[in-house]
Amino acid sequence: MTKDPYAALGLTKEASADDIKKAYRKIARTDHPDLNPDDPRAEARFKAAGQAYDLLKDPEQRRRFDAGEIDASGTEQAPRGYYRDTARGPENPYTQSRTSQGNPFQGGFDADDFFANFARGQGAGFSRGAPGDVPGQDVQYRLGVPFLDAALGTRTRITLPDGGTLEVKIPEGARDGQTLRLRGKGTPGHGAGQPGDAFITLDVIPNPDFERDGDDILVTLPITIDEAILGGKVPVRTVSGTVKVSVPAGASSGQVLRLKGRGVKGRNGKGDQRITLRIVSPSRIDNALKTFMEGWRAEHAYDPRTGKETK
């Protein structure tokens, strides 16, 4: 992606969080690969916008990028003296331990400190094993997940800082901000010490067609004038595929239909899909339609603001 995530969204650093969200959704609607199957440039813009949104929607990540602490891909930017400092400083922020207390030798080695810390370690639960048995540390990662993958569940891999990979199972119905725990996938222990765990925080990437509300899925369904007046079966996308929904005769814009069990998996089963209808007039009004509507208005004028006929 571009080195400037703001540029990928057509914004500047002064953009608000709402501006960032709106810009991403606009690009997702126009450049989504499903809408531009033969346009690699549109796909590239869509991917760049998704990566930029993934970075900037998190206030802390945005602050760190603006401060130059991480780059546009979220990778740590090594400050001057990095290798010297990390040799005696706390862990890398991407692999911070939940149990670590920092480096006991910060600022230089002291034999008395070494043996004091070793003794404290013995009293902190290491006495069950040999003196050199030390458990591994927990590590934390963030993972961007497409909306549909989170809704349906999937398996994916993340690349670790050391170049290795870790397979992650995304459960069906996963939520934005949800943290997964992979036991034994942290740093290895020393001696007979058990390895630490890996904690994966999920960042669900928005989808231009779907919105989530609890376990329900929200969509907007455009319908024609005749479908609104006469009713009929109309195709609508769900997270698990396209189905046909019955639009009742006399439907209005803003009316909400419900598909039971077409939402996402939650603690109490699957939610529903709620469909908001939106009547869309044809882009060109031909003479036949115009003549018909003029005749209808002359005989059946109706004011929807009062709910009464005007004749």
Rank of each mutant, 00 (worst) to 15 (best):
S252K: 14
V280Y: 11
D149Y: 05
D110A: 14
A87N: 13
Q178T: 08
G271I: 01
D113I: 13
N36K: 11
R29A: 15
A48L: 01
I70L: 06
L55Q: 06
N268F: 02
V243F: 01
D162M: 14
D226P: 12
E60W: 15
Q255P: 12
L148I: 15
L56P: 00
R25M: 14
N268I: 00
R88Y: 15
L9I: 06
A52F: 01
I200W: 04
K3C: 04
L55P: 02
S252E: 12
E294G: 13
D71E: 03
I229F: 10
D112V: 14
P161W: 06
R157Q: 14
P40M: 04
D58L: 13
G121V: 09
R175F: 12
T220G: 13
L166E: 13
L289R: 15
R142A: 11
R120K: 04
A249D: 08
A150Y: 01
A23I: 02
A249Y: 03
K22H: 05
G144E: 07
L259H: 00
Y53H: 13
I27N: 06
D113Y: 08
D216Q: 07
A192W: 04
D58F: 13
P104W: 06
P208C: 12
N92V: 08
R155Y: 03
W296E: 13
T159D: 10
K21Q: 14
D286G: 02
F292H: 14
V134R: 10
S100T: 06
S283T: 10
A111G: 04
P104F: 13
G271V: 08
A17Y: 05
R305M: 15
H32E: 01
I223R: 10
E299H: 05
P146D: 08
D197L: 05
P40D: 06
F126G: 02
I20H: 06
G193N: 01
K260C: 00
L218T: 02
D213Q: 07
A151T: 11
G136P: 06
R297W: 11
V234A: 09
F65T: 00
D286C: 09
G125Y: 05
A17T: 11
G186V: 08
I70A: 08
N36V: 09
S97Q: 03
P131N: 12
V245Y: 02
S100Y: 02
D272V: 09
T291S: 15
Q194T: 13
E299V: 01
L160P: 05
N92D: 15
E294V: 15
H300S: 09
P33Q: 04
G68C: 05
P188H: 06
E91F: 04
S73R: 06
